[in-house]
């Protein structure tokens, strides 16, 4: 473990907590893409199947459980408890266009052709594009609540910090995982225009409005 990965994990946890609190406190999931939340739940489920078979550390197991519970809890709040506030008219990204190609690619490019490894690879590839429905929804509505932009900033920062972690691990341990690195770079690049808007607008107290 290194500080970059730890701060990255905490940023990821912060993002998930921000979103959960936003939905719970405002009793509304307006402006939030339920499809992205479904994809994130799928990412955690397919990645953490080794939760009980491959013990890494208490921290690792506890965080996996927290991610699973909070992401499924968010999906539950969006599609059941506060379903009436779910904006399905703007959350129209065809996620099958993500899941199918990612599923195919995970069979073609992986470290090991075993069920657990293919599911892990699927999870890594899926996570890199899972935010697309959310970014698409914001581009359709043309704006995002400030709390949602904080959520996205924390979520985008987590994988950017993981990239720093991979550089650090490469130089200190000689460790590198090309699948995770390439997918992590794609994932972080997808946030770039949002990062620009966040830093130039939200941090100056303005509402996040996409140029029409």
């Amino acid at each position: 473990m290194n500080v970059f990965r730890l701060v990255g994990d905490l940023s990821h946890l912060l993002a998930i907590i921000i979103l959960l609190l936003k939905i719970w406190k405002t009793r509304s999931c307006a402006g939030v893409s339920g499809k992205s939340q479904i994809l994130f739940s799928l990412v955690f489920i397919t990645r953490y199947l080794d939760l009980f078979t491959n013990f890494i550390s208490v921290y690792n197991s506890v965080m996996k459980i927290i991610y699973l519970v909070t992401s499924l809890g968010t999906v539950y709040l969006m599609y059941f408890k506060f379903k009436a506030t779910y904006d399905s008219n703007h959350d129209t990204f065809r996620i099958e266009f993500l899941v199918v190609p990612v599923g195919g690619l995970s069979f073609l490019v992986n470290h090991d052709f075993t069920p657990l490894e293919i599911l892990w690879t699927f999870s890594i590839y899926l996570e890199s594009v899972a935010i697309l429905p959310q970014l698409f929804m914001i581009s359709k509505t043309g704006e995002a609540e400030t709390i949602t932009s904080h959520y996205l900033f924390a979520l985008g920062s987590y994988r950017a910090l993981y990239i720093v972690n991979w550089v650090y691990r490469y130089y200190t341990e000689g460790f590198f995982d090309l699948i995770a690195i390439v997918a992590g770079c794609v994932q972080t690049i997808l946030y770039c225009d949002f990062f620009y808007l966040y830093i130039t607008k939200v941090l100056k107290g303005k509402q996040l409005k996409l140029p029409a």
Binding site: D50, N60, H111, D112, I179, A180
Partner: peptide, 10 residues
Amino acid sequence: AAYDAGHDEL
């Protein structure tokens, strides 16, 4: 390689 020790990252 990354996987034989089991993926140690979240």
